[in-house]
Design a protein around this nucleic acid. Structure first.
Lengths: 127, 127
DNA sequence: ATAATCCTTCCATTAAGTGGAAGGTCAAGA
DNA sequence: TCTTGACCTTCCACTTAATGGAAGGATTAT
C-alpha cells in the first residue's frame, strides 16, 4: 500500500506518516524499486497504535516505548503500566496547574468592569 | 542597569530578557557606546509585567497586546477583558480535554494488573 | 501523448526559549 | 600596568511534533 492509502487507513495526514518513517517510529514494511514506501497491514496497525497513543498525549518517546512493548509478546504488563502511570501523573499535574490558573484568571475577569474606562484590575494585577 | 541585574530584578533568566529584546517585546531603554543593553525602571517593570502574564500562560503575542494596553493610559478595560476572556476560554478547553484524558487513562491504569504477564488492557485499548 | 495525481527529498517554519562558542568589555587585585 | 574573572555581545544550533511548500520523478487515466 502506498503512503497515501496507508495514511487514510490510519486516519493520519500523509506528512505525519512520512515524518514517523523519518524518525524511525513506524517504518514502511518496504520500498518499491522507485523509492515509494510500502505499508503492509502490520505497519498500518502500528500507525493506528501510535495515533491512539498520541491522542492520549503520550510523547513520541513514550509512543516508541509503548510500541516496543506492543510488539514484544512476552512483555510484562507492569512495564506498560509504569509508562501509563507516569504519564497520568503528568496529566494530573497539568490539570491542576490549569485549574489554578483558570480560577485566578476567572477572578480577574470578573473583577474587571470591561467598559470604556482605563481602570483595569487585570492590568493592575500584572503590574 | 545591565541585562544581568535587570534579569535578576525581574526574576527572569538573562537569556530570556535578551530574547524579549530580540523579538521586540521589551526593549532596553538604551545601549552603552560599547553595545551593552541598559534597562531603566520602566523597562524592568515591563519585564515583570511580561513575566506575570507569561505565568498566566498568555502567549507572547497576547503579552504584546497586554503590554500595549498596559502602556496606553487611555485604554478601555473592555479591551483587556476581551483578551483575558479569550485566554480563559482556551484554558477551560484545555482543562476539559485533560480531564477527559485523565479519566480515561485512569480507567486503563486501574484495569491493568501491572504484573509479569504480558496481557495488558492498555496495549489492547491502543491496538 | 499528456494531464492529473500520486510520490520523492529537502528546506523552512511554528513557540518560547535554552545552550554554547567565539570574542569584546569592565572592574579589581598584584 | 597587566591580568584574571565576571560580565557582556552576536550568532548558530537544538528542543517538540509536526506542517507547508518547492522541485522533480512515477503512475494512472484519458
Amino acid at each position: 500500500m502506498n503512503i497515501g492509502k496507508a495514511a487514510d487507513q490510519a486516519g493520519l495526514p500523509t506528512k505525519t506518516v512520512r515524518y514517523y518513517a523519518d524518525i524511525g517510529l513506524v517504518l514502511p514494511s518496504s520500498r518499491t524499486q522507485t523509492g515509494y514506501r510500502n505499508y503492509d497491514i502490520s505497519s498500518i496497525k502500528k500507525l493506528i497504535f501510535v495515533k491512539r497513543a498520541r491522542s492520549f498525549d503520550f510523547s513520541i518517546k513514550e509512543c516508541r516505548e509503548l510500541l516496543g512493548l506492543y510488539e514484544e509478546k512476552n512483555r510484562s504488563s507492569s512495564d506498560v503500566r509504569k509508562i501509563a502511570i507516569h504519564h497520568l501523573e503528568e496529566i494530573k499535574r497539568k490539570e491542576e496547574d490549569l485549574m489554578k490558573l483558570r480560577i485566578e484568571l476567572d477572578h480577574l475577569v470578573n473583577a474587571c468592569a470591561g467598559d470604556d474606562r482605563p481602570n483595569c484590575p487585570i492590568i493592575d494585577y500584572l503590574s
